[in-house]
Nucleic acid binder design. Structure first.
Lengths: 294, 294
DNA sequence: GCATGTTTTGGACTATCGGTATAATATATT
DNA sequence: AATATATTATACCGATAGTCCAAAACATGC
């Protein structure tokens, strides 16, 4: 991903958040980011694809940061779950990307709709898994229901809030409030065996709908490629980390905790540099791969 | 409201539900309802106004039928509340207008957005009042929260359902399921005094946001006008009812239960006739007025 | 430094959209 | 029959997403 392209992407994101997707014309993006129409359509094959890229970027960022929060922590810690949910809200300039999600969901392009749908399902899937982490194995048949309901409550409360108040929403207050509601709901559902989504549907909700991980070879290749792209004198630590990662990944039995630690350091190293995004993306991919090992 | 205009409106509604609002062009409506562009813009000043008319119509219809369900019933009967909620879902061809609500909410036109916002607030307001009916005075500080959450859960479950299943949703099952969740939530909120929306905001949510009622004189005038518009030989019962309503409304102290009964019969009389819509609209207005008497 | 290939530019162009305007025609009313 | 109102068909407008392309700017290897 080009630096220029990324800048266009961020500009577009800001405009979409400020003005809404449909009300932001391509021309607005061109004016604001000082590129020509040709360049825009060189980067993105359409306005929709531009939005897709933005959402994908936000999704990746969210996933990485949520993963980060969990390292070395107890899976059942409810506070961590709160923080993880807050990430999505805060990341999009105080929950302003979610409306875009919805706005587009019903709007026109079926391709885009499918894309959003998958993303939504991925979010449901993630939250379902996390709810099981927090509420235990007994919650398995009801976690998907609760995940969907939690999302619905959050979204609608945000709507209602923006409709009646100009003040900023206290996200933390909202999420903790909602988790207390789940605290009330979950035991009742478990004791009365009262689930809405049946097993088969539930499996689609909780199944893995995220994009598939790359193969190990592809991953190693990208890592090596990234290392080569670095100029020799700058950030020698970065190259060292990559070298170590490559060796550990190629080894007979990679040590997961070592990998996680090194990946974390690897990401930290590139914080604030121009190639941070690519480093972050790579770190995420490695993480995803490491996840499949245990 | 013209018959032709009403037919155009219904055609547009069908198209909006089938194809979505933004993807349905005015030309589509023209083709489907066999009218010219001129006629359309004679009826509606814009595509947005057309949608507004549809939503207003649906809102009125919902309100009347919900009111009907409550006559002579116990306000705290939970089954009635279930039926009332189902009306909105069933009225719009299995919940398909709700997505239009949302789609437009974030999309472009600020005038339309305000309109939808008010309609949404009216719905919150109604449900808030009904939840107090059902759960008692103790629920007052928490009813608005629960109303918003109930809506959010319903909407998101509908989303999720349509994303993972082609089968038709069992609306009754959904609503009863959700009310059981409110059963779990409400006591906890009351006992821990755990409300999200504070008093001042809450008042906007539960306040009267519906369009103001007409004055008594306007109402009587419209009733008389409608009576005059009827041909003499057809539906003499209809004219009788109107005559009675006029007299009762003009009397010193109108008897509410009598008015409610007669209005009901009045509506029934015109079921299936071409002027049913106007009769229904009038019945609704009378009902609204009668409501202000006690 | 020069040549080669790639990226970017800016504008002309198309098709579709919501909406306006109007002159001709059909339908009702009196 | 005359007048008024409703409807039609069509041309037009400005904005939009998206295409196309030749010229300019930039980068890269020799």
């Amino acid at each position: 991903m080009n630096d220029r392209k990324r800048q266009v992407l961020l500009t577009a994101q800001r405009l979409f958040i400020d003005k809404g997707f449909s009300t932001t014309s391509v021309q607005d993006i061109l004016d604001e980011s000082n590129i020509s129409k040709g360049t825009f359509y060189n980067y993105f094959s359409s306005k929709n694809e531009c939005l897709k890229a933005i959402l994908e970027h936000a999704h990746d960022e969210t996933t990485v940061r949520r993963h980060e929060l969990l390292i070395g922590q107890n899976l059942s810690d409810k506070n961590i779950l709160v923080e993880q949910i807050l990430i999505r809200m805060h990341l999009n300039r105080e929950h302003n990307l979610l409306p875009i999600f919805e706005a587009v969901f019903h709007s026109g392009d079926s391709d885009l709709r499918g894309f959003i749908k998958n993303m939504l399902l991925a979010e449901f899937s993630w939250l379902t898994r996390r709810l099981v982490d927090v509420y235990g194995k007994d919650a398995v048949p009801y976690a998907a229901d609760c995940a969907v309901m939690l999302f619905g409550m959050m979204q609608q409360i945000l709507h209602a809030w923006s409709a009646v108040s100009k003040e900023e929403m206290d996200s933390l207050k909202l999420v903790t409030f909602l988790l207390r509601r789940i605290d009330s709901i979950m035991p009742g559902m478990i004791s009365t065996k009262d689930a809405f989504f049946t097993e088969d549907v539930f499996s689609k909700l909780s199944g893995d709908v995220e994009d598939q991980t790359e193969t190990k070879e592809q991953l190693l290749e990208r890592l090596a490629g990234f290392s080569d792209s670095l100029v020799d004198d700058a950030l020698p630590a970065g190259k060292q980390y990559i070298q170590f990662l490559l060796e550990e990944l190629r080894s007979e039995c990679p040590r997961i905790f070592v990998l996680e630690s090194i990946v974390r350091s690897f990401r930290e190293t590139f914080k604030g540099f121009s190639n941070e995004p690519e480093a972050q993306e790579l770190a995420y991919k490695v993480w995803r791969y490491v996840d499949t090992l245990d």
